[in-house]
């Protein structure tokens, strides 16, 4: 039996405290930034799209956008693929899988600051990784000061997020009814047929949500990047987040405002896609 709920203003009362907080601390300040993105930093006059125009000709901005896109383009498919594999193996395993799942999830709990020291000793030009490589007579490299820095960042991201995505895949897999598999088996379908024609198609909705969420999570990788390499890391791992940080230090308000609005528009677009998947 479904109850039709009548319109109740009491609902709004419940939300009021949160609404005030969100308005004061998040929503209106952001609108103010949108306004500022159309205003010159020094003069305070309305300058139209000039801030945006200077943004898209800014060398640092273009470099950061390119790197960020490259980072996302490499990380997201890798993460989705690598987390699906263990998820497939752990699906319908109950007890035995739990421990393995914990191992994969644990990096999520490790504070970034705790592993900074480790990354530094691991990827130093005379660090542990190069030591291991030299033992099997492979040439190492100065990871943090070459294009290798980018791959170190990719590794950090995968390490921290694999468990998260795996849990989401597992939820998707658990949602596929056993009866589908049973029916196909009765019809004589083999393992691969089951995988291609039942598992994969049924995972499609999970695939979209996990991609979007992984994309949004990718912004947090800056913590590692910043703590390990500082404000001016190697060019290959100079991401949008570094750029914002440096603008902030220089108080480049006009660029920051325009940059924030452009990023927000992209993120809002992605989030609305996600919302359509949910509704």
């Amino acid at each position: 039996m479904k109850y039709r709920r009548k319109t109740q203003w009491t609902g709004l009362l419940w939300i009021l405290p949160s609404l005030l907080g969100v308005g004061v601390f998040i929503f209106f300040p952001f609108l103010d930034v949108v306004r500022r993105s159309f205003i010159g930093a020094v003069t305070g006059d309305f300058v139209g799209l000039a801030n945006y125009r200077s943004l898209f000709t800014n060398r640092a901005f273009l470099l950061a956008v390119r790197n960020t896109l490259r980072f996302l383009g490499i990380c997201i498919p890798l993460l989705l693929g690598l987390s699906l594999l263990p998820a497939l193996l752990l699906d319908r395993q109950r007890k035995r899988g739990q421990l393995v799942k914990s191992l994969f999830l644990f990096p999520m709990a490790v504070p970034v600051a705790s592993v900074v020291l480790l990354w530094r000793t691991l990827f130093h030009s005379q660090g542990i990784l190069n030591g291991c490589l030299s033992r099997v007579s492979l040439a190492g490299r100065d990871w943090m000061n070459t294009g290798g820095a980018f791959w170190v960042l990719v590794l950090c991201y995968l390490w921290r997020n694999l468990g998260y995505d795996m849990v989401l895949w597992l939820a998707g897999l658990a949602g596929i009814p056993d009866s589908l598999y049973e029916a196909a088996k009765v019809d004589g379908a083999g393992k691969w047929v089951l995988f291609w024609y039942i598992t994969l198609p049924n995972l499609l909705p999970s695939f979209f949500t996990i991609s979007v969420l992984s994309l949004l999570n990718a912004f947090k990788v800056f913590r590692e990047a910043y703590l390990v390499a500082g404000s001016y890391p190697h060019e290959s791992m100079y991401l949008l987040q570094h750029l914002f940080n440096n603008w902030y230090r220089d108080l480049a308000l006009d660029k920051m405002a325009a940059g924030a609005v452009v990023s927000a528009v992209v993120i809002f677009g992605l989030s609305l896609c996600l919302k359509r998947l949910w509704d």
Binding site: Q8, G11, F30, D32, V33, Q241, A264
Partner: peptide
């Protein structure tokens, strides 16, 4: 648990705001 005018819009705004990374909110 309640229905009230503007609920859908407000909730969508909440959802969008939750997606903003810190860098976007830094200036504000």
């Amino acid at each position: 648990r309640y229905e009230f005018p503007g609920k859908r819009l407000l909730f969508t705004i909440y959802m969008l705001l939750m997606m903003l990374p810190f860098q976007v909110r830094m200036l504000s």
